[in-house]
Simulated scan of single mutants.
Amino acid sequence: MTALLPAELAWYATGRFYRTNDGSLADYGYFLHLPLFDVPLFDGQPGETTAHFTFAATPFKSQAVTNGALSLGLDPIGEFSLYLQRQPAGNFDDPASFAQGECIATFRRASLVVGTTVAATLGTTAEPLMGDNVFSARLIASTPFEFGGLRHDVAYSLGQGVTQFGTAAVTPVVPPPPGYDLVLPFTGSAIALGRVG
Protein backbone atom coordinates (compact mmCIF):
# COMPACT_ATOMS: atom_id res chain seq x y z
CA MET A 1 0.00 0.00 0.00
CA THR A 2 1.13 3.55 -0.73
CA ALA A 3 -0.09 6.61 1.15
CA LEU A 4 -0.62 9.82 -0.79
CA LEU A 5 0.96 13.11 0.20
CA PRO A 6 -1.35 16.07 0.95
CA ALA A 7 -2.70 17.61 -2.28
CA GLU A 8 -1.55 14.62 -4.35
CA LEU A 9 -4.04 13.31 -6.93
CA ALA A 10 -6.46 10.93 -5.25
CA TRP A 11 -8.97 9.98 -7.92
CA TYR A 12 -10.76 10.65 -11.17
CA ALA A 13 -14.45 9.80 -11.18
CA THR A 14 -17.32 10.08 -13.61
CA GLY A 15 -21.00 9.71 -13.01
CA ARG A 16 -24.41 11.29 -13.25
CA PHE A 17 -26.57 13.51 -11.08
CA TYR A 18 -30.12 12.18 -10.80
CA ARG A 19 -33.14 14.23 -9.71
CA THR A 20 -36.21 12.37 -8.55
CA ASN A 21 -39.75 13.52 -9.20
CA ASP A 22 -39.92 14.98 -5.64
CA GLY A 23 -36.80 17.13 -6.20
CA SER A 24 -34.25 14.98 -4.34
CA LEU A 25 -30.76 14.75 -5.87
CA ALA A 26 -28.06 12.10 -5.71
CA ASP A 27 -25.00 11.19 -7.73
CA TYR A 28 -23.82 7.76 -8.80
CA GLY A 29 -20.90 6.57 -10.88
CA TYR A 30 -17.49 4.93 -11.01
CA PHE A 31 -13.79 5.63 -10.73
CA LEU A 32 -11.34 6.05 -13.61
CA HIS A 33 -8.36 6.26 -11.24
CA LEU A 34 -7.78 5.41 -7.57
CA PRO A 35 -4.53 5.23 -5.56
CA LEU A 36 -4.68 1.43 -5.55
CA PHE A 37 -1.55 0.59 -7.46
CA ASP A 38 -1.41 -2.58 -9.57
CA VAL A 39 -5.15 -3.11 -9.06
CA PRO A 40 -7.43 -3.59 -12.07
CA LEU A 41 -10.16 -0.93 -11.98
CA PHE A 42 -12.12 -2.53 -14.83
CA ASP A 43 -13.04 -5.99 -15.99
CA GLY A 44 -12.57 -5.26 -19.68
CA GLN A 45 -13.00 -2.04 -21.66
CA PRO A 46 -13.42 0.92 -19.22
CA GLY A 47 -17.04 1.89 -18.63
CA GLU A 48 -19.81 1.74 -16.06
CA THR A 49 -20.63 -1.92 -16.72
CA THR A 50 -17.03 -3.08 -16.15
CA ALA A 51 -16.03 -0.84 -13.20
CA HIS A 52 -14.91 -2.61 -10.05
CA PHE A 53 -14.99 0.60 -7.96
CA THR A 54 -18.19 2.65 -7.81
CA PHE A 55 -19.77 5.34 -5.65
CA ALA A 56 -23.25 6.37 -4.54
CA ALA A 57 -24.48 9.39 -2.58
CA THR A 58 -27.19 9.64 0.03
CA PRO A 59 -30.04 11.63 -1.61
CA PHE A 60 -30.35 15.30 -0.63
CA LYS A 61 -32.32 18.42 -1.56
CA SER A 62 -30.59 21.48 -2.97
CA GLN A 63 -31.50 25.16 -2.72
CA ALA A 64 -30.99 27.68 -5.52
CA VAL A 65 -29.56 31.22 -5.68
CA THR A 66 -29.30 33.36 -8.83
CA ASN A 67 -26.71 36.07 -9.49
CA GLY A 68 -27.02 37.41 -13.02
CA ALA A 69 -25.75 34.77 -15.46
CA LEU A 70 -24.76 32.48 -12.56
CA SER A 71 -27.13 29.92 -11.09
CA LEU A 72 -25.90 28.56 -7.77
CA GLY A 73 -27.01 25.26 -6.29
CA LEU A 74 -26.53 24.98 -2.52
CA ASP A 75 -26.13 21.34 -1.52
CA PRO A 76 -26.25 20.47 2.20
CA ILE A 77 -23.68 18.42 4.08
CA GLY A 78 -24.19 14.79 3.14
CA GLU A 79 -22.51 11.45 2.66
CA PHE A 80 -21.36 9.21 -0.16
CA SER A 81 -19.83 5.75 -0.15
CA LEU A 82 -17.33 3.82 -2.27
CA TYR A 83 -18.02 0.23 -3.28
CA LEU A 84 -15.94 -2.66 -4.54
CA GLN A 85 -17.87 -4.69 -7.10
CA ARG A 86 -15.94 -7.89 -7.61
CA GLN A 87 -18.47 -8.70 -10.32
CA PRO A 88 -19.15 -5.30 -11.96
CA ALA A 89 -22.84 -4.46 -12.24
CA GLY A 90 -23.02 -0.67 -12.69
CA ASN A 91 -25.62 0.62 -15.12
CA PHE A 92 -26.58 4.28 -15.56
CA ASP A 93 -30.15 3.19 -16.34
CA ASP A 94 -30.28 1.77 -12.79
CA PRO A 95 -28.57 4.25 -10.41
CA ALA A 96 -28.90 1.92 -7.41
CA SER A 97 -26.63 -0.56 -9.20
CA PHE A 98 -23.63 1.61 -8.22
CA ALA A 99 -24.37 1.00 -4.52
CA GLN A 100 -23.86 -2.77 -4.78
CA GLY A 101 -20.96 -4.89 -3.63
CA GLU A 102 -18.74 -4.24 -0.61
CA CYS A 103 -18.81 -0.79 0.97
CA ILE A 104 -15.11 0.04 1.42
CA ALA A 105 -15.34 3.68 2.54
CA THR A 106 -17.81 6.43 3.46
CA PHE A 107 -17.16 10.16 3.25
CA ARG A 108 -19.08 13.14 4.63
CA ARG A 109 -18.92 16.48 2.86
CA ALA A 110 -17.31 18.93 5.27
CA SER A 111 -19.55 21.89 4.49
CA LEU A 112 -22.21 23.26 2.19
CA VAL A 113 -21.37 22.63 -1.48
CA VAL A 114 -21.91 25.47 -3.96
CA GLY A 115 -22.36 24.36 -7.55
CA THR A 116 -22.24 27.07 -10.23
CA THR A 117 -23.91 26.99 -13.63
CA VAL A 118 -22.72 29.59 -16.14
CA ALA A 119 -25.09 30.89 -18.81
CA ALA A 120 -24.38 32.88 -21.96
CA THR A 121 -26.86 35.20 -23.63
CA LEU A 122 -27.58 34.08 -27.18
CA GLY A 123 -29.94 36.53 -28.83
CA THR A 124 -32.68 37.15 -26.30
CA THR A 125 -32.27 34.01 -24.21
CA ALA A 126 -29.67 32.84 -21.70
CA GLU A 127 -28.38 29.36 -22.47
CA PRO A 128 -26.59 27.33 -19.78
CA LEU A 129 -23.06 26.35 -20.81
CA MET A 130 -21.54 24.29 -18.01
CA GLY A 131 -21.55 23.73 -14.28
CA ASP A 132 -18.83 23.22 -11.71
CA ASN A 133 -18.39 22.66 -7.99
CA VAL A 134 -15.74 22.12 -5.36
CA PHE A 135 -16.11 20.35 -2.03
CA SER A 136 -14.08 18.71 0.68
CA ALA A 137 -15.17 15.44 2.25
CA ARG A 138 -13.82 13.77 5.37
CA LEU A 139 -13.40 10.03 5.54
CA ILE A 140 -15.68 8.75 8.31
CA ALA A 141 -15.44 4.98 7.77
CA SER A 142 -13.10 2.61 5.96
CA THR A 143 -13.01 -1.17 5.70
CA PRO A 144 -9.77 -2.90 4.61
CA PHE A 145 -10.22 -5.29 1.71
CA GLU A 146 -8.25 -7.69 -0.47
CA PHE A 147 -8.31 -7.33 -4.23
CA GLY A 148 -5.88 -8.05 -7.02
CA GLY A 149 -3.76 -10.16 -4.68
CA LEU A 150 -3.09 -7.28 -2.27
CA ARG A 151 -4.62 -5.81 0.88
CA HIS A 152 -5.91 -2.23 0.64
CA ASP A 153 -7.39 0.42 2.92
CA VAL A 154 -8.77 3.74 1.68
CA ALA A 155 -7.95 5.31 5.06
CA TYR A 156 -4.28 4.54 4.58
CA SER A 157 -4.18 5.69 0.94
CA LEU A 158 -6.12 8.96 1.29
CA GLY A 159 -5.68 9.93 4.92
CA GLN A 160 -8.36 12.29 6.23
CA GLY A 161 -10.31 12.65 2.99
CA VAL A 162 -10.37 14.56 -0.30
CA THR A 163 -11.14 17.85 -2.00
CA GLN A 164 -12.92 17.30 -5.30
CA PHE A 165 -13.30 19.61 -8.30
CA GLY A 166 -16.21 18.73 -10.57
CA THR A 167 -17.51 19.71 -14.00
CA ALA A 168 -21.04 18.86 -15.10
CA ALA A 169 -23.15 19.06 -18.21
CA VAL A 170 -26.13 21.34 -17.70
CA THR A 171 -28.18 20.58 -20.81
CA PRO A 172 -30.35 17.49 -20.27
CA VAL A 173 -29.60 15.15 -23.18
CA VAL A 174 -29.69 11.85 -21.28
CA PRO A 175 -33.20 10.35 -20.97
CA PRO A 176 -33.99 9.83 -17.25
CA PRO A 177 -34.86 6.33 -16.03
CA PRO A 178 -38.26 5.71 -14.36
CA GLY A 179 -38.67 7.68 -11.12
CA TYR A 180 -36.35 10.51 -12.22
CA ASP A 181 -37.02 13.69 -14.17
CA LEU A 182 -33.47 14.92 -14.83
CA VAL A 183 -30.05 13.33 -15.40
CA LEU A 184 -26.80 15.28 -15.86
CA PRO A 185 -23.39 13.64 -16.49
CA PHE A 186 -20.31 14.90 -14.62
CA THR A 187 -16.66 14.23 -14.00
CA GLY A 188 -14.64 14.91 -10.86
CA SER A 189 -10.99 14.95 -9.86
CA ALA A 190 -9.93 14.88 -6.23
CA ILE A 191 -6.78 15.54 -4.24
CA ALA A 192 -5.96 13.91 -0.91
CA LEU A 193 -6.27 15.89 2.31
CA GLY A 194 -3.39 13.89 3.74
CA ARG A 195 -2.81 12.53 7.22
CA VAL A 196 -2.81 14.40 10.51
CA GLY A 197 0.58 14.59 12.26
Results as ranks from 00 to 15, higher is better:
residue 2 T to P: 01
residue 3 A to F: 02
residue 3 A to N: 01
residue 5 L to Y: 04
residue 6 P to S: 01
residue 7 A to F: 04
residue 8 E to Y: 03
residue 8 E to N: 06
residue 9 L to R: 15
residue 12 Y to D: 09
residue 12 Y to M: 08
residue 14 T to R: 15
residue 19 R to G: 00
residue 19 R to S: 03
residue 19 R to V: 07
residue 23 G to Y: 06
residue 23 G to N: 12
residue 24 S to L: 10
residue 25 L to R: 10
residue 27 D to S: 12
residue 28 Y to P: 01
residue 29 G to H: 08
residue 29 G to I: 04
residue 30 Y to Q: 05
residue 30 Y to E: 00
residue 31 F to K: 12
residue 33 H to M: 14
residue 34 L to T: 05
residue 34 L to C: 06
residue 34 L to A: 06
residue 38 D to G: 07
residue 40 P to H: 09
residue 40 P to Q: 14
residue 41 L to N: 08
residue 43 D to K: 15
residue 44 G to V: 07
residue 44 G to S: 07
residue 47 G to W: 06
residue 49 T to I: 02
residue 50 T to A: 11
residue 53 F to W: 08
residue 53 F to K: 09
residue 53 F to G: 05
residue 61 K to P: 00
residue 64 A to K: 15
residue 64 A to L: 15
residue 65 V to C: 04
residue 65 V to R: 15
residue 66 T to W: 10
residue 66 T to E: 12
residue 68 G to V: 11
residue 69 A to I: 08
residue 70 L to A: 12
residue 72 L to I: 15
residue 72 L to W: 04
residue 73 G to E: 10
residue 73 G to K: 14
residue 76 P to Q: 07
residue 76 P to L: 08
residue 77 I to R: 15
residue 79 E to Y: 02
residue 79 E to M: 09
residue 79 E to D: 06
residue 81 S to Y: 05
residue 82 L to S: 01
residue 83 Y to G: 01
residue 84 L to E: 03
residue 89 A to G: 09
residue 90 G to L: 08
residue 93 D to H: 07
residue 95 P to K: 13
residue 96 A to C: 00
residue 98 F to K: 04
residue 100 Q to P: 01
residue 102 E to D: 13
residue 103 C to R: 15
residue 104 I to C: 08
residue 109 R to L: 06
residue 109 R to V: 04
residue 109 R to E: 05
residue 111 S to P: 03
residue 114 V to N: 06
residue 116 T to S: 14
residue 118 V to W: 07
residue 118 V to E: 06
residue 119 A to T: 13
residue 119 A to V: 02
residue 120 A to F: 04
residue 120 A to R: 13
residue 122 L to P: 00
residue 126 A to V: 02
residue 127 E to V: 15
residue 131 G to C: 09
residue 134 V to R: 14
residue 135 F to V: 01
residue 139 L to A: 02
residue 139 L to P: 02
residue 144 P to L: 09
residue 144 P to Q: 08
residue 149 G to H: 11
residue 155 A to N: 07
residue 156 Y to D: 03
residue 156 Y to P: 00
residue 158 L to H: 00
residue 158 L to W: 03
residue 160 Q to V: 01
residue 161 G to D: 02
residue 161 G to K: 09
residue 162 V to C: 06
residue 163 T to D: 00
residue 166 G to Q: 13
residue 168 A to D: 03
residue 169 A to P: 02
residue 172 P to Q: 15
residue 173 V to H: 13
residue 175 P to Q: 11
residue 175 P to H: 11
residue 176 P to F: 10
residue 177 P to A: 12
residue 179 G to R: 13
residue 180 Y to V: 08
residue 180 Y to Q: 12
residue 182 L to W: 09
residue 182 L to R: 15
residue 183 V to I: 13
residue 183 V to T: 14
residue 188 G to P: 02
residue 189 S to A: 14
residue 190 A to Y: 04
residue 190 A to D: 04
residue 196 V to D: 07
